[in-house]
Write a protein that binds this DNA or RNA. Structure first.
Lengths: 244, 244
DNA sequence: GTGCAGAAATTGGTTGGACCATTGGACCAC
DNA sequence: GTGGTCCAATGGTCCAACCAATTTCTGCAC
């Protein structure tokens, strides 16, 4: 029997319908990322469904990173939406241990290098100026706060991913960035973590500005190498202290 | 069932706490994928939260593919869970168009090259023999079936990811591979798709067997380049035919 | 007018209770 | 057995509140 000739029937699919309607709304209103979308209460009323159903739908979108909810403020679009988006939720059974972190770094090394190269290929003058701006902010924060410019550092990298023209870079690395932070925020890490990588931000930028993909890739690899070194040093220190 | 494995919830960030408690429960009860977890009503009662909160949490898990809900039946575990999972929701804007596939290919190029290099560094003699075996199977399938050895082809690549020592390579690329295939099956592609990439499988293997990371990376890049070419040719053909 | 503290309105988060739709098993007539 | 009917369990939806964080407005002191 051809199993395809008897597909499961679909009766109710409320929250799916809500999401589809919401996609239509975002397109109709031409909402851009960052803009606020209607209140849950308004959506419930307009779509003639309960607020709970709206919330289930929005919870799904939030899980996909398409939307961000801020209590007391509203729900904000976080990424562009289209009727034919493809979702690929990937959950990795990772750990907080050293080797897991090294594994994410291996992935990041590959992606960071590729992103830097693509960025150098495709950056417009405006893009380069934007990256330069982020670099300045980061360097200033680094100097005034004696290191620990992680927030500005991250924005610099994000700018590169964005200019690479491929949103997947940012999405994948962002997930790992989060894991990374969860790790060394609380547990003790190396105090001057990230110091060694500092100079390479500028060299990466210079290679991008010079439209030199190969050079940009090489500098990105050097940066990741310093992070790996820091991580290994931290692990060694941890091992040492736990032995006493 | 041990009631102590479901202690009440603390304070704010309710649904997150629910998920954390649920992870603990799954571990405590050693639930395997396929097994049913407690009723929403029971969870709500045990955790001292409202059923809606439980539902929001389960909705998130459902969105991540960790769990499946069947009305009238129950909620079933779909994958293994661990306290420190890393979630990576990837969203491809614009589904079935050409650029989405090219974007996944850019990611795959970065990862494939890195995996091949790491594989060449770390492969044991047994690993190399295993890869050689997969290569033989693939080449034979290719010859007897006149191309279209996609299944065996994929297994060859998987062997490389596995030997790289980093499971993240396989998981990430596997997600994209699946996406890739969903387009390949139905929509018309180039008929001899993949033919051009065939010889590079052996050259990659040779570089790995020679413990030559740089060479392996270079050959992997060539392979991806041929796939990109095929894809571009397919897109051009499609464009041409849609104009008539 | 300006600035700022506090009240009020707005908005997402949570609760409890109700009912509907589907499922799957128990039971029964044939 | 076979096919039906009933019924309890379970996820899906709805409603009407209230809570907590945020934003906006208001009015007073200066």
């Amino acid at each position: 029997m051809d199993q395809n000739s008897l597909p499961p029937i679909q009766t109710t699919a409320r929250d799916d319908a809500v999401l589809k309607a919401l996609v239509g709304f975002v397109r109709a209103e031409a909402l851009q990322p960052g803009e606020r979308l209607p209140t849950e209460r308004i959506l419930a009323e307009r779509l003639k469904v309960s607020r709970n159903t709206v919330r289930e739908a929005l919870t799904r979108w939030e899980g996909l990173g398409l939307v961000e909810r801020r209590q007391g403020s509203g729900t904000y679009l976080k990424a562009a939406v289209s009727p034919d988006m493809l979702h690929m939720p990937l959950t990795l059974a990772g750990g907080n241990d050293f080797s897991s972190l090294m594994q994410t770094l291996e992935i990041r090394r590959a992606l960071e290098a590729e992103a830097a190269a693509l960025c150098a290929e495709r950056a417009s003058q405006a893009d380069i100026a934007e990256i330069a701006r982020k670099l300045d902010i980061m360097e200033q924060a680094f100097r005034t706060r004696e290191g620990m410019s992680s927030e500005e550092d991250w924005e610099f990298h994000q700018a590169i991913y964005r200019v690479s023209g491929n949103p997947l870079f940012e999405q994948i690395i962002a997930a790992m960035h989060e894991l990374f932070h969860r790790f060394w925020e609380h547990p003790l890490g190396v105090r001057d973590f990230g110091h060694a990588s500092f100079p390479y931000h500028r060299t990466i930028y210079e290679r991008i500005a010079a439209r030199d993909p190969r050079g940009a890739r090489a500098e990105a690899l050097k940066l990741i190498a310093t992070v790996e070194d820091d991580l290994k040093r931290g692990a060694a220190k941890l091992k040492l202290s736990s032995q006493t």
